[in-house]
């Protein structure tokens, strides 16, 4: 090992423990501290496993769209942390549930839904900027495979379409950048922008911008209010929507 390698390794090991965990650290390269569980009304439940590992799932959605994600801190250099997150999703029950007559039928009831498994892999890098602010960038690739006869149309809405496009196109990409930090006392902010790439002749990309403000009470409660500006190219054209966001989060 070269001298430079030794120095780098020493820095990485020395800094790893200090920076690889963080509370309320969803959408960053940090993982939830060991033995801590953070959950939300709408967001994922995250559990710190220690050793730079985090397990997460969306409990509200789990029974209709089974999903599990593992995030691991892969590399720490100085203040910067690089993690990878791998999410396995089985959306078939949800698509079958939505293929129905009447209200709530987002897909035609005659849809034939195959067994679909999707694997999303993301690399996240978080760089503290000082004064509590941090910049996070991420790059992701979703791969999906289907087994069985399929006759399912897309759900042509912003936010939904780019996230489900991989089920139909087998591969999509995403990349984003976020900035988060304190605003005043217990109030924090988070702004981000994310780009989705869809290899489809009708819809090729989508973009979203989030603005979130959170109020943290002690170490266990957090209230988040925000808004999402979503643009998506869709099979018929494009659509822009502004959506409200709300979550109540609890940790133990």
């Amino acid at each position: 090992m070269s001298l430079l390698g030794c120095v780098l390794a020493t820095v990485v090991v020395a800094q790893a423990e200090a920076y690889k965990t963080g509370t309320w650290s969803a959408a960053t390269a940090y993982v939830t501290p060991e033995n801590r569980v953070e959950t939300g009304l709408f967001g994922a439940t995250r559990m710190g496993l220690g050793d730079g590992l985090e397990l997460s799932s969306h409990p509200l959605w789990f029974f209709v769209i089974p999903n599990v994600a593992v995030k691991r801190v892969d590399w720490v250099l100085g203040d910067a942390v690089l993690s990878s997150e791998h999410t396995l999703t089985y959306p078939t029950p949800l698509l079958k549930l939505l293929s129905r007559e009447g209200v709530g039928g987002l897909l035609p009831h005659e849809s034939r839904v195959p067994h679909i498994v999707a694997l999303t892999n993301e690399l996240l890098v978080t760089q503290p900027l000082g004064f509590g602010h941090a910049l996070t960038g991420w790059l992701g690739l979703t791969l999906a495979g289907a087994v069985g006869r399929a006759n399912v149309t897309t759900i042509d809405l912003p936010v939904v379409y780019p996230r489900m496009a991989a089920y139909y196109e087998h591969v999509t990409g995403n990349a984003g950048l976020s900035l988060a930090g304190p605003v005043w006392r217990k109030v924090t902010y988070r702004v981000d922008g994310e780009l989705f790439l869809i290899p489809n002749r009708q819809a090729t990309w989508a973009a979203e911008a989030d603005l979130e403000v959170s109020y943290t009470l002690g170490d266990t409660w957090q209230l988040m209010l925000g808004t999402k500006l979503a643009y998506s190219q869709l099979p018929y054209g494009s659509l822009t929507r502004l959506l409200p966001m709300l979550d109540v989060r609890y940790a133990f």
């Binding site: 293929s99 007559e101 209200v103 039928g105 897909l107 009831h109 042509d156 869709l234 659509l239």
Partner: peptide
């Protein structure tokens, strides 16, 4: 409608 959430009508 941009989306009709019944019977799979959609847009």
């Amino acid at each position: 409608a941009d989306f009709v959430p019944t019977d799979g009508v959609g847009r």
